[in-house]
Amino acid sequence: MTTLDVLLPYYGDVALMQAAVHSVLAQTDPDWRLTVVDDGTEPGVPEWFAELDDPRVSYQRNEQNLGVTGNYRKCLGLAEYEYLVFMGTDDIMLPNYVATVRAALAAHPGAAMVQPGVEVIDSTGKPSHTLADEAKRRIYAPKDQGRILMGGEELAVSLLRGNWLYFPAICWRTEAIRKTGFRDNLEIIQDLALVIDLLQAGEQMIVDDTRCFQYRRHTVSISSKSAYSGTRFTEARRYFLDVADRLDEQGWTRAAKASRLHLSARIHALTLVPGALRAGQWDGAKTLLRNVTSTTSRPR
C-alpha cells in the first residue's frame, strides 16, 4: 500500500487544530503525508506551520473562504496517493491510526472505505457518552468483533436505519471518492450520502473495531448549532426521500423502505424538542416536530 494522504480542511479553533496536527506527527507508522488547507484568517497559523519543518506536512491558506464543501473538494483535488482520510480539525488520531487502516487494507485490497474503531471525547478531551453515540454503538453498529468486510444493500439498510459511522475517521480509496464526489445541496448529511453512493456503485467497506481515533463531540459543531433550529433534520429528510427513489430503481427495496422511514433521525429530532423549548426556540421546536411526524411527502 502507498502513503496515506491525511487531508485537513481547516477552519476554527487554532489550539484544537494544532492538537490534531500533533496527533498525526505522533503516528507509529510514518508513511503518511499531511495536507492542511486553511479556509480561515486566524493570525499566526501560517507561521506555526512554517516552524514545524516536516517535509511530510504541507500548508496553504485559501485566498477566499470556500465553505465546508468547497474546501473538502479542494483538499480532494490535492490528494496524490491511493488512499486518503478527511480528518476533522478538532479530532485526534491515536498513534496506531495509520498502522490500523493500512493493515485492514492489506487484508482486503481494493476496498473503498475503512471505518476503524472510534472513541468519542468532549470539548476537553475526556471520554463522552451521549445518547446519540450510545445508540450508534449499542443499537445500530454491527455486533461483529474484529475486522469484517461489508457492502451492498445489507450495509445500506444498516446505515439508513441509523448512521453509526464517524466520517472524519474513515479512510477512503481516492479514485472511488473522486468518481462519486460531494453533493452541492448537502452539508450535514454529506457523509452518509457519499457512502450510500459508493455502495450503490458496488464498493465495499472494511469495519475494524480496533480503537485508533478520537472523535470530538461538542456544542460548537455545525451539526450541533443547527440541531435546535431543526434545519439539519429538514436536510436529512429531503435526502432520505430522494435516495429512497434511487434505491427503489436499483431494486434495493429494503434499503428504500429504511430510508423513507429514517426512524433514528425522527427519534433524534424528538429528543431535541424539550431543549428547543427550554431555549425559547419555538420555531425550531415546530420544525423538529414536523420532521418527527412527517410522512413520505417531500418537505417544502
Rank of each mutant, 00 (worst) to 15 (best):
A135E: 08
L241K: 01
Y239A: 01
W164V: 03
V118L: 07
D133T: 11
M17I: 08
V157Y: 05
Q250E: 11
S158P: 01
D39H: 11
S223T: 08
R238N: 06
A20H: 03
T219M: 11
S221V: 04
K143P: 01
E134D: 07
P299H: 13
A285I: 05
D90Q: 06
L198Q: 12
D122K: 07
D38V: 07
K136R: 15
A99V: 01
P274I: 13
I177C: 04
K143N: 05
V98N: 01
N71V: 06
A193C: 10
R147E: 08
A99M: 12
G275T: 04
Q200A: 10
R254A: 15
A50T: 10
P127E: 04
T180Q: 10
G67A: 12
R102M: 10
V14C: 05
F49L: 12
I177K: 00
A156N: 03
D144P: 02
L241D: 01
G230F: 03
G117F: 11
A169I: 07
S128M: 08
Q190G: 04
T219L: 12
D197T: 11
R183V: 06
I222T: 13
G44Q: 06
R290K: 14
K257D: 15
T69L: 15
R102Q: 14
N65A: 14
A276E: 00
S123Y: 04
G146Y: 05
A20Q: 03
M1I: 11
T35M: 02
L76P: 02
Q281I: 13
I177G: 00
G146M: 13
K179F: 10
T271D: 08
V68N: 11
L160K: 02
D208F: 05
A111H: 00
G202I: 10
A227H: 02
E203D: 15
R73E: 14
G88T: 04
